[in-house]
Design a protein around this nucleic acid. Sequence first.
RNA 1: GGGCGAUUAGCUCAGUCGGCUAGAGCGCCACGUUUACACCGUGGAUGUCGGGGGUUCGAGUCCCUCAUCGCCCACCA
Length: 1022
Amino acid sequence: MSATTSLESLPKQYQHREPERRWYQFWLDRGYFHSEPDPTRPPYTIVIPPPNVTGALHLGHALNNSLQDILIRFKRMQGFNALWMPGTDHAGIATQAVVERRLLEEEKKSRHDLGREELVRRIWAWKDEYEERILGQLKRMGSSCDWERTRFTLDPVCARAVRHTFFNLFKQGLIYRGKRLVNWDTYLQTAVSDDEVFHETVAGHFWHFRYPVIDPVPGEPTHVTIATTRPETMLGDTAVAVHPDPQAALAEAESQLREKLSQAPDKQRPALKAELTALVERRTTHLPLLLKLRDMARSGRMLMLPLVDREIPLVADEWARPELGSGCVKITPAHDPNDYEVGLRRSLPMINILNPDGTLNANAGAYRGLTVAAARQRVVADLDKLGLLADVEAREIELAHSDRSKTPIEPYLADQWFVKMEDLAESAMQAVRAQSVRIVPSRYARGYLDWLGEKRDWPISRQLWWGHQIPIWYARQVSEQELKQAFAGRDDVVWHRDPEHDQWLVSALEEDLDPQAIPGRRLEREQDVLDTWFSSALWPHSTLGWPERTAELEYYYPTSTLVTNRDIITLWVARMVLTGLFNVGDVPFREVYIHPKILDGYGEGMSKMKGNGVDPLDLIEKFGADSLRFGLAWLTTETQDIRMAVEFECPHCGKLIEQTKKNRVLPRLACPHCRGEFSTQWARKPDDLALPRAAVVSERFELARNFLNKLWNAARFTLLNLEGYSGEPVAESELAVEDRWILSRLSTVTGQVTEALDAYRYADAMRLLYEFAWDDFCSFYLEMSKGRLQQAESRPVAQRVLAHTLDVLLRLLHPAVPFITEEIWQLLAGAARHRGLAEPAEAAESIMIAPWPAAERERQDATIEARFALFQEVLRGLREIRSRQNIPPKTPIRFSARCRPETADLLRAMEGYFESMAGARAVAWGEEASPPATHAHVSLEQLELYVDLAGLIDVAAESARLEKEQARLAGQITAKEKKLGNQAFVERAPREVVENERQALAGLREQLSSVQKSLSALRGQG
RNA sequence: GGGCGAUUAGCUCAGUCGGCUAGAGCGCCACGUUUACACCGUGGAUGUCGGGGGUUCGAGUCCCUCAUCGCCCACCA
């Protein structure tokens, strides 16, 4: 690939679009992204957290993937055999939900209208579309994934890994089927896990009902009062519970409250006191009745459940808390998790009153066919008619909603599949405790351990059509003898008895079972599919070919680093660890890096639903992929989430329009600047869609864009000055002071950047590079090279150091900003093919495969760096005087500097640069330098700077400035005197610190006195 | 209810092991088209380091406490 021929034609502003396309194709063509196992080199492996094929990538993905690509490119340059394994996740519920919603919107059809096969076909079509889009987005970002290895969680290799895992777990008795209360999503008609449920506070009611006691004897209550927020569930009640020892329970509650009260802050005391009073009162208001009811429960008395006229027992159970409500609680085992436990303990019937679609079933009697909401109204009304409605309170209710469909969850008793977690969880906990898996930042290890520590069994079945179908066949009315005969000699089939139903559960390893496998019987396949996380959990080894012991698995596993966000540490990371240990016998990765979360300007998470999401492609179009990457890495600090206000960019006038909570959910908007109308992501109607769409961007990427433009122009300058460049070695003795300085800084920064990247300190790495490139390289080195480049004798060395420094800087920046660095690298190759100082060598054909720079310790020179710091300080002083005295830049000034001889020697060498960079000529250096009659004065730690202002002086400006300076110095002196006057400080602080303070005080006093002298001289003139 | 994180300039954020006058970018003010760059340069202004207490010779930094915000987990007939 040839570099642009005419350097003069390089634009003054970096144009990102064309190089991005060109160099990505170049890298692909050269096969740089591809990795093959190679025992002679160490591997460095990352598996991508596979994005869901539900939709396009958002800014969170851009962050996640930028950080991964930075690591991969960094390690590749360091000589590792770097593999970044890409792919996507089928995301069972989420994807099916999206496609179903669309089906309903566009065709008014449900999945049942289509049938399983057709729906799955449609979801595949959706998957193909979005996978392509997602992979396209990753490519636009510059991701150096090994695309030849791209996987999808439903690929045959992944399916095989799923089958093997399921089979092995099942064989070992770690997978079982059981009736459990699940979070039932009535819209999607599937169970969702606890992790897929969110709670929302809604206005609701608390209804109090009376259930009649059957045949009450005199002295007994005729009714028992219970309360509920879900009246319709009473149709499934199978008992009412009262505490077996209400007196003790009440006393216990009371003592706990007293304990709490004794420790409560004053603010909370009144409320707690009131609560306590009420509780004490219960001893007289509630206790006698509860004791009576307890006795009735013990003697097996029954209640009449109204509306369905079912006799239900009064039972004694600890779940009923005498301090709450009436002290009695209705028990609905099939629709409440706690009641379910009571049901199990007291051997109560479990009556399911719901159909999968959320309507009531035959068990609800007359209410059959009604929706939950309709049934609720009817039940309340009917009970009211019967005089059994005791009370209604308004109350805020935390209502469970499905994360997927956003509809309310109904607790529902259903047959589900589970993985026993006891031992698996323990192994995954041990891996983190023993640091076989290191979580960075380490604070996240705690949540991981706490969550696994609960060892709750993992519900893995989903009543969906999109996913890995559970490889289980039901054999009903079959003897084990028949099974043994049918599958004789096959070790790829195992079966377990289902204790709850009269049937066998048969699993097969790879091949599906023939429904006719048992003569005269029919094997029926389980319809449910597996939880998405079941296949995601296998991702690090399934993508490498497991269960085969492939060369890839042997070489790349365990992978090196997992880069992900904190939301899925439990759902995904923990499960990868335990399946990795179970299947492969080793952890899936050595380190897990948890990165920040991107929030909008209001501190809220970004999501498509809220309308505050950002498409990375919008940002890439506006700022370029490199700016996106650098900007995100710049913001990736250890503790802070990334807060980012977003704006619409008007497609007509280009102005930015602040995104508010109101305007961000509208399909169309009018630009407040130019009045032009545009559409947003919400546009659905044809006339909205016809409008130009506004990109959603953020000003926070301007910093990165400006920086890269600065880099571009530094490169332009370098390239324009390399005519006649020779790749000859540079001898140490040929180096100028500024050369040694920039090389020292370069070496220091190289070491710091390497360390920062190794520790995932992205923001630090970016800051180091930003400051070096802008402040050291551009503002000083480049400026200082201008004169040298004009002169024949100094030009060659200046060219070589310039080219070398740019070369190293580009390599340090490349992992973060791959495109612009490649563009400049190639241009530089055209002008300076051989680079390096002591031993120049031909540059690599691509920066991607160039070696990572080594920090040359012998180049680091603290003396030179200190000398430059002083030079920069003096320069700043001279510029400040020029500025405050309003002396035009082109008017030459003369200055003298009073300082110690060694300081003078140091600075005298830089005389030419004071002239070229500040237009200032030195007339005197050293201890004998004295202030001219009219002068401006700047007092520095190591020297007094006087600028001769004959004919120029602005007395008012100068004296104002000096007075301010005088006050500042006096203040500092007072503070220091106080500190040093403190006996304790002098005695107890380290000698060094005290000595430093003394010297600082002496210096300050000198500075003050010289400022005062200048001030009085000035007053003499005024 | 339990846990984690945050609170530093108008805004968004750095601040290492407790130690010189607490920094950056944006924004603001003034000046400037100087032969890489106005997506630029030079200079300037701006701080109760959330409040209170403690440890220490010394606290933005460590400890306690309160407040506010965000997130995670659990629970709420």
